[in-house]
Design a binder for these strands. Structure first.
Lengths: 241, 241
DNA sequence: CGTCGTTTTGATCGCAGTCAAACGTCGTGG
DNA sequence: CCACGACGTTTGACTGCGATCAAAACGACG
């Protein structure tokens, strides 16, 4: 359905010529639906396909020895789940759905051919990988330095921003299919503490969180609370090198 | 000096033909020395060169609003500081030396030409980026889930392993130029708590930490303590796709 | 010998974890 | 239409790891 999100994300920083967009569109014809809370790719797997998010939310995660889980990144429509599979065979983490997901699956080799070429699409994929890495760095930087309140605020700002880029924010409101436990696993706190934090945010008029929707009542205050600035997502449309 | 470390790292998973190695060797001729505790690249900079670690340690870091610092990764001989600069103009973090460093500086365009080509060297650089990302994911996964003792143990295992790969471990012993404060910034705890943790490790016979050297007295116990397994560094020499 | 940078030790505090129970909502089946 | 159970949210009481503040000890070096 939402092939559009993929193109919007790839054109995030630089427009692609029509023929390259068409070529990418060609790759996105094979779809798959995965139910909520199921693995898209499991830890240790050696995926044959590269999966691309068309609809729904998913999460990269790692399970530790004691059974506790840590979410390493949130995957939203337009995101590639495992671009790295073209160069790294086995998964060092798992990816599971947060809500029911629509995915496109692409032969690894097809992606590989694009990446090895010297096209604008190849640049866009490279940039996309590097921006994912930048987001990961930001999460790591926040982790252990921001307190629960700041961390949750930051997460909400980031997700709002990323959804907005692919055209999925509606005013100040976004879908929020994640349970409080998943929010906790994403910022490194317990679901109990997420709950108290959300309660405080609600009381202070920052957000409204209700039936799978998050409405940001006071965007400025939320951004300030989460020390959020968009710079790390490298939205600048300036040219490299 | 230690151009060797760079090649060892690039050949980590797959040997390179002689002519490609020579070509990379050509790129590493311009050297620079940076004193201890100085920025190699500052936050917000737009570096013209890609820097490669030849000798010494450095750290990717981010400074938060309140002045607290978080180390995002440790850079060891053989590591590329800012490969991402070929596609992302401005630095979203800083890089500073932990000890005095020897660096090679390469024109961005020269690296770009290799990456855009379809050579084994290009694959090796791609893999190297993806492995850095995998290490980052592991750090994020550990952060907030491992306690201080486990986190420090994991850090030591990883650094030992990475130094070993480029031939810089000597038996069970490695140089450890990082101050306790820097170790703390890397795992997200204070230097005071690092100190207590090191004390406990020493008391339990896991390590000896003394005058800028770390000796691992009981490797198995240290690995167990840090829940360390090498898999996330993707050392396997198997072929992709 | 004194200074600077770093490590070490002690005492107290607070954020978030843990355990447990109650509550609300929704879908299913009797 | 209601009872039931599954799932997720909410609230309370208590605990503990690591932070914080402060000062002392150590070691290298000019």
């Amino acid at each position: 359905m939402n092939v559009d999100a993929v193109l919007r994300k790839l054109e995030w920083s630089e427009p692609l010529p029509k023929d390259e967009k068409d070529r990418i569109g060609q790759l996105l014809i094979h779809h798959r639906v995965v139910a909520r809370h199921r693995d898209i790719i499991s830890f240790g797997a050696e995926p044959k396909y590269v999966f691309v998010m068309l609809d729904g939310w998913a999460a990269r995660y790692r399970t530790l020895a004691d059974g506790s889980r840590r979410i390493l990144s949130i995957l939203l429509p337009g995101d590639f789940c495992n671009l790295h599979s073209i160069a790294i065979r086995t998964m060092d983490h798992g990816i599971k759905t947060v809500s029911e997901c629509q995915l496109a699956c692409i032969e690894k080799e097809a992606i590989d051919r694009i990446v090895r070429g010297d096209s604008l699409a190849s640049r866009a994929l490279l940039r996309s990988t590097l921006i994912d890495e930048a987001i990961l760095r930001r999460w790591l930087g926040n982790s252990g330095r921001l307190n629960a309140y700041e961390a949750v605020a930051h997460l909400f700002c980031e997700i709002y921003c990323r959804l907005d880029i692919v055209g999925l924010a509606e005013g100040n409101s976004i879908p929020m299919p994640a349970r409080q436990e998943e929010i906790g696993d994403a910022v490194g706190i317990t679901s109990v503490h997420v709950n108290r934090t959300l309660g405080r945010m609600r009381a202070e008029g920052l957000i409204d969180y209700h039936k799978g929707r998050l409405t940001i009542e006071n965007p400025d205050a939320l951004r300030r609370a989460g020390r959020f600035s968009v710079d790390y997502m490298h939205l600048d449309r300036s040219e490299p090198s």
